[in-house]
């Protein structure tokens, strides 16, 4: 119940901050931009667009959200409520994942005419979005300014994005799937392209384990730097 209330208040906050409006504009922009790309290319371009924007939006926004809540004293106030650190983190992750899912589905629906495995798409969006949001929370917990946050996410972005080029395919490139970002991209591509059910199952399990591990780590970091050190 506490978690549901926290998610509701986070969604209202994100709505007031214009997240939903900006993503409506972004979806329209993608619709116009992607209309230029010939149909056969869309099955590769649309997943890449969904992966590079809606799926990682949490990493972009969570830094500002945490910084603002630190300045406004929201976190200090939340600490004395029954809401646990884990619930606080989960609320942020789930509320931002909702925007990811909506934007990802709308972009796909408006731009792609081929077959889509919608359940896989939603699962991939949730797991990717939570992965990046949790990373953002870990980095944001240790930052004091938004610019500091921007600088600190650059190495993380490079570490996550560069291995993604392995999907082009070269010798032993599948080993790079151990990078969670590559696993997430492969799963997302699986929603648009043919992919074996077993591979999808393993990718989902792998991402679930990584997300859970990252959630535990985020909880620790958040307690150390924000709750007790803030």
């Amino acid at each position: 119940m506490r978690l549901l209330s926290a998610i509701k208040s986070d969604i209202i906050f994100q709505f007031r901050q214009g997240f939903y409006i900006i993503y409506i504009v972004i979806c329209i922009a993608y619709m116009v931009g992607l209309s230029w790309i010939p149909n056969p290319g869309l099955k590769y371009v649309v997943p890449l667009v969904v992966f590079s924007d809606p799926a990682v939006l949490g990493l972009f926004f969570i830094g500002g959200i945490i910084m603002l809540e630190k300045v406004q004293g929201v976190i200090q106030a939340v600490v004395v409520t029954p809401l646990s650190t884990r619930e606080f983190i989960q609320s942020k992750v789930i509320s931002l994942s909702i925007i990811s899912i909506l934007a990802g589905i709308i972009i796909t629906r408006l731009t792609y005419i081929g077959n889509v495995k919608w359940i896989i798409l939603v699962i991939a969006l949730v797991l990717t979005s939570s992965l990046f949001t949790l990373c953002g929370l870990v980095i944001g917990a240790k930052c004091k300014t938004v610019n500091q946050y921007f600088v600190k996410i650059i190495p993380v972005m490079l570490l996550f994005i560069i291995p993604c080029f392995s999907i082009i395919g070269f010798k032993y490139s599948y080993f790079l799937t151990l990078f969670p970002s590559v696993a997430a991209l492969r799963l997302l591509l699986g929603a648009y392209l043919d992919m074996g059910g077993l591979e999808q199952f393993f990718l989902i399990c792998y991402l679930l384990i990584i997300n859970y591990g990252l959630l535990l780590h985020t909880e620790k970091v958040f307690d150390k730097y924000v709750v007790y050190g803030g």
Partner: peptide, 23 residues
């Protein structure tokens, strides 16, 4: 700050108008 990030996201799209002739 959060609204700033929202506007930054919008600004990123405004930059793409430099490519609009391509469409």
């Amino acid at each position: 700050k959060v609204k700033g990030l929202t506007y930054a996201k919008g600004i990123n799209f405004m930059l793409l108008f430099c490519l609009s002739d391509l469409l």
